[in-house]
C-alpha cells in the first residue's frame, strides 16, 4: 500500500477537522490554547458518549430518537435520588438502571412488537420527556452534593474528569463493538439480517439488547452531564439525539448497511464540537448558533449520505 493511498484512506472528515482547527486558529489567537482544548473536551464529552450509543443502534440498522430524553431522565433520577438522601453510588446506579429500563421498553417495541424504530422511539421520546417533566414539575433541580459534582468537574485547571470518564465509556463501547459477541452481532444484524438469522444468531434478542445497551450507556452520559452542570434540567436533552445521529452519519457510518465504526463517530463529534466552539471563538452571536449549526449539519449530512450511497452503488 503506497503512502499516498494510506493518506487517501484517512476519512475526509479528518481533514475537515484539521482545516477547521487551522482556520479558527488563524482567525483567533486565543484559539490554539490548552485551556480551549480542554474546554472542547469537557463540553463534547457527553455528546461523545451518546453518539457512541447511537452509533451502535444505527450500525444494527436501527434508530433511537429517545436517547436525548433517556439522557435527561437518567440525570433527573440520579439527582432526585441524591435529594432523597441516597448515597452517591446508589444514586448513580439508579440513574443508570433507569436508562437500562427505558432501553428495554424501547427494545421490546422494536424487536418483539416489530414497530418501526423511528415511530417507536419518537413515541418513547414523548413519553420519557413527559415523565421527566412530571418528576421535576418542569423545574430544574439543583444539587450541591460535592461527591456527585466531582464526576463532572475538572480537577485543577488541566484535569477534565468528565472528559476522562466519558473517554473511558467511549472506549468501552468501542471494545464492546470489536471484542464481544454482541458487538459482532450488531454488525451482522445491520449488514445482513437474514444471513445472520440463517447462521443461527437469535437476531430478535440481540436487536432488543441493542436498545438496552444504548439506553444504559446514554444514561451514564446523562448522569455525567447533570454532575457537570450541577443541575438536572428536564429539557437539557432536547435535540441531543439529532446531534448524535449527525455525528454518527458524518463519521461515515451508513444508515443501511452495517458499515461504520464508533471511531468514525469520534471524528463526527469532534467536528460538531469544533464548529460550536469555533463559532464562540470567532464571536458569532449565541442567538445565531443553533440556526447556523442546524443548517450546516443538515447539508453536511445530505452531502455525506449521497457520497456514501454513491460509493455503495459503485461497489
Amino acid at each position: 500500500m503506497s503512502p499516498l493511498k494510506t493518506l487517501l484512506d484517512i476519512p475526509k472528515i479528518f481533514w475537515v477537522n484539521v482545516a477547521l482547527i487551522v482556520a479558527f486558529s488563524l482567525i483567533s489567537s486565543r484559539y490554539m490554547t490548552i485551556l480551549n482544548a480542554i474546554n472542547i473536551m469537557q463540553q463534547g464529552a457527553v455528546l461523545l458518549v451518546i453518539t457512541a450509543a447511537m452509533t451502535i443502534v444505527i450500525l444494527s440498522e436501527g434508530l433511537d430518537l429517545s436517547l436525548g430524553a433517556v439522557m435527561t431522565m437518567a440525570g433527573v433520577v440520579s439527582v432526585l435520588a441524591l435529594g432523597a438522601g441516597l448515597p452517591v453510588p446508589v444514586a448513580i446506579l439508579a440513574g443508570v438502571l433507569s436508562g437500562t429500563f427505558l432501553g428495554a421498553i424501547t427494545g421490546t417495541l422494536i424487536a418483539f412488537c416489530k414497530m418501526s424504530p423511528f415511530i417507536a422511539t419518537l413515541g418513547m421520546q414523548g413519553v420519557i420527556f413527559g415523565f421527566t417533566l412530571a418528576l421535576t414539575h418542569s423545574k430544574a433541580i439543583f444539587t450541591d452534593n460535592a461527591n456527585f459534582i466531582l464526576i463532572g468537574s475538572r480537577i485543577g485547571r488541566y484535569v477534565p474528569l468528565a472528559a476522562i470518564l466519558c473517554g473511558i465509556i467511549f472506549l468501552s463501547v468501542w471494545a464492546t463493538l470489536h471484542h464481544t459477541k454482541f458487538g459482532r452481532y450488531v454488525i451482522a444484524i445491520g449488514g445482513n439480517e437474514s444471513g445472520a438469522h440463517l447462521s443461527g444468531i437469535n437476531t430478535t434478542f440481540w436487536k432488543w439488547f441493542v436498545y438496552v445497551f444504548a439506553g444504559t450507556v446514554t444514561a451514564m452520559g446523562g448522569i455525567i452531564l447533570a454532575a457537570r452542570l450541577e443541575v438536572a434540567d428536564p429539557i437539557v436533552g432536547v435535540g441531543w439525539e439529532f446531534d448524535a445521529i449527525a455525528a454518527t452519519v458524518l463519521g461515515g457510518t451508513s444508515l443501511t448497511t452495517g458499515r461504520g465504526d464508533v471511531s468514525g463517530s469520534f471524528l463526527g463529534v469532534l467536528l460538531i464540537m469544533l464548529l460550536r466552539n469555533g463559532m464562540n471563538v470567532v464571536g458569532t452571536p449565541p442567538i445565531w448558533q443553533p440556526a447556523l449549526m442546524g443548517t450546516i449539519i443538515i447539508f453536511a449530512i445530505a452531502f455525506q449520505v449521497s457520497t456514501t450511497m454513491r460509493e455503495e452503488a459503485g461497489r
Binding site: L65, F242, W288, P290, A291, G294, T295, I297, I298, M309
Partner: peptide, 23 residues
C-alpha cells in the same frame, strides 16, 4: 433528490428552522 430518509431530513430541518425562528 438527496436520498436522505425522510425522518433524518425533516428532523434536521426542524432544528435549523427552530434556530432561525429564535434568531
Amino acid at each position: 433528490r438527496g436520498g436522505l430518509p425522510p425522518f433524518i431530513a425533516t428532523y434536521g430541518i426542524q432544528w435549523a428552522v427552530f434556530g432561525f425562528a429564535y434568531v
